[in-house]
């Protein structure tokens, strides 16, 4: 009767918290490893896990660690609900449950020899950081690489030190913008969409990856299209209520698709008609 059935997709695996890092006021990063010492399943960037707090509940969270470093599982989480607020209290050696990885990935394999434009808003940088790590590791495969990241204020900028380090790297073009700032901020103030036409990339040979609030993704995709990037080369990450992550509970349905298994990464071209519809 006692069994750890890795074949039951609804059964969480216990993972121990190795480190907790407080990022910005309501956001923190967990560094996890399996409690039984077994290997962490490999993941593709853009995928997510279902994270379980004993007796409380389970939520879908994108993976934000380095896919080329298989020794740890990293999740950046924003405390917005019951389960994530419980997770905010986790300390090293605490144990949570992990199921996954699930979902589609950012298809950077399609960007070989092309430019990549990454547009992130707020917590949306979390899954895209994984992608950046991967791109940096195999930098020579791609053309220009642009990161445009928008946050509320400089104090709410996720991974700010890393962003500033990336800004200094000659082979990355990094533009940081905020919605408002005090006079100590020397960067841009304004929406990410404003920085898109200013970035250097060849729209005919570009793959664009966008992650952030739905409104921001919608307007960014429109701006990219205005610049000449084809809709099928623009990718967004959608989010919906999920309980199973394997297409059985039905809750994540997004018209024709299930966000858990057909997404969360979708090409803008495939869901353009849905993004403009209310309450779909």
């Amino acid at each position: 009767m006692m069994s750890i059935e890795s074949s039951d997709p609804m059964l969480p695996r216990p993972y121990r918290v190795r480190r907790v890092r407080r990022e910005i006021p309501d956001t923190f990063t967990l560094d996890l490893e399996p409690e039984d010492g077994s290997a962490i399943p490999s993941f593709a960037t853009g995928q997510f896990n279902m994270l379980y707090v004993f007796g409380v509940g389970e939520i879908p969270i994108s993976i934000s660690g380095d896919p080329t470093k298989p020794g740890s599982l990293v999740h950046t989480i924003r405390a917005v609900g019951t389960v994530s607020r419980m997770m905010q209290k986790l300390k090293p050696t605490d144990v949570i449950g992990v199921r996954g990885p699930f979902g589609s990935h950012w298809p950077i394999e399609r960007a070989i020899g092309k430019d990549i434009v990454i547009i992130a808003g707020g917590i949306g940088l979390a899954p895209l950081r994984s992608t950046l790590y991967q791109i940096i590791k195999e930098r020579e495969k791609y053309g220009k690489v642009v990161l445009i990241y928008g946050a509320r204020t400089p104090e709410d900028m996720l991974y700010r030190k890393e962003c500033e380090r990336w800004q200094k790297q000659p082979h990355l073009e990094v533009s940081l913008t905020v919605d408002r700032a005090t006079s100590s901020w020397c960067g841009s103030v304004g929406l990410v969409t404003k920085l898109i036409p200013r970035a250097s990339f060849d729209p005919q040979k570009t793959l664009a990856l966008i992650c952030g609030p739905e409104v921001m993704m919608r307007f960014s995709a429109v701006e990219l299209e205005k610049c000449g990037v084809a809709a099928e080369n623009i990718f967004v990450s959608m989010e919906r209520n999920m309980k199973c992550a394997i297409g059985f509970c039905g809750r994540c349905q997004y018209s024709r698709s299930f966000v858990c298994k057909d997404g969360p990464i979708f090409s803008y071209g495939s869901i353009r008609d849905l993004l403009v519809k209310r309450e779909i």
Binding site: M1, M2, S3, I4, E5, D8, L11, P12, P14, R16, E35, F54, T93, D94, V95, G97
Partner: peptide
């Protein structure tokens, strides 16, 4: 202990 054991 700090963790839990699942029983399927």
């Amino acid at each position: 202990g700090h963790g839990f054991q699942t029983i399927s």
